[in-house]
């Protein structure tokens, strides 16, 4: 099966990972003269989340490139058929997608959740030319006692490992500076 290029970008809170991912997406879309798609998994359920969403939207507008936004909290595989072989997709972010499966959809079986995320990524990769996936670094904290958080970290860790294994390029962003962990940044 022909699959698109997969780029994984992660970093801490306010590390500049989203901004970096957006710049990369714009650059690649410009070079290939193709369409830019943005998959937003966040559900703007409160004013803080609405603020965060707005800030990201303003940033994307400033890029001077037209993004098509898809608001899809779960089952990204269901919109995969909307994309074509030239598209560049930015997915921001894996932790939100995972949250939605675990806490909105209340899928408690972590193996099923991990499989669903994998399925979403596979479906997107099989359609688009390039998919850029953004996620968070949250696994270097003191170990949590409660099962819920521990389980969440476990699934996230496994999902990240699988994405990195499959990725053509994997980048850790520290204070806005990209550290290439896998592949080459051109």
């Amino acid at each position: 099966m022909d699959t698109g290029k997969l780029i994984f970008i992660t970093g801490g809170v306010r590390s500049g990972k989203s901004a970096f991912a957006e710049r990369l997406a714009v650059k690649h879309a410009r070079e290939a003269d193709t369409s830019l798609h943005y998959i937003a998994c966040g559900i703007p359920s409160d004013t803080e989340m609405q603020e965060r969403v707005k800030r990201h939207q303003r940033d994307r507008e400033k890029s001077g490139f037209t993004w098509r936004t898809w608001e899809q909290p779960v089952h990204l595989s269901h919109i995969a058929h909307q994309f074509t072989g030239q598209d560049v997709i930015l997915l921001d972010c894996v932790t939100t997608l995972l949250n939605n499966y675990l806490f909105q959809e209340e899928t408690t079986d972590t193996k099923i959740v991990a499989d669903l995320v994998q399925e979403d990524i596979t479906a997107l990769c099989s359609r688009a030319d390039e998919i850029i996936i953004v996620s968070n670094e949250v696994l270097q904290d003191i170990p949590y006692e409660d099962k819920l958080t521990l389980n969440y970290q476990k699934v996230l860790g496994h999902v990240h490992q699988k994405i990195v294994k499959r990725a053509n390029l994997a980048i850790l962003v520290e204070s806005g500076i990209p550290l290439v962990k896998k592949g080459r940044l051109e």
Partner: peptide, 12 residues
């Protein structure tokens, strides 16, 4: 001795 570190659930 070989010391291996990294975040939780990172495949160490």
């Amino acid at each position: 001795m070989h010391f291996v570190t990294g975040g939780a659930f990172n495949g160490k």
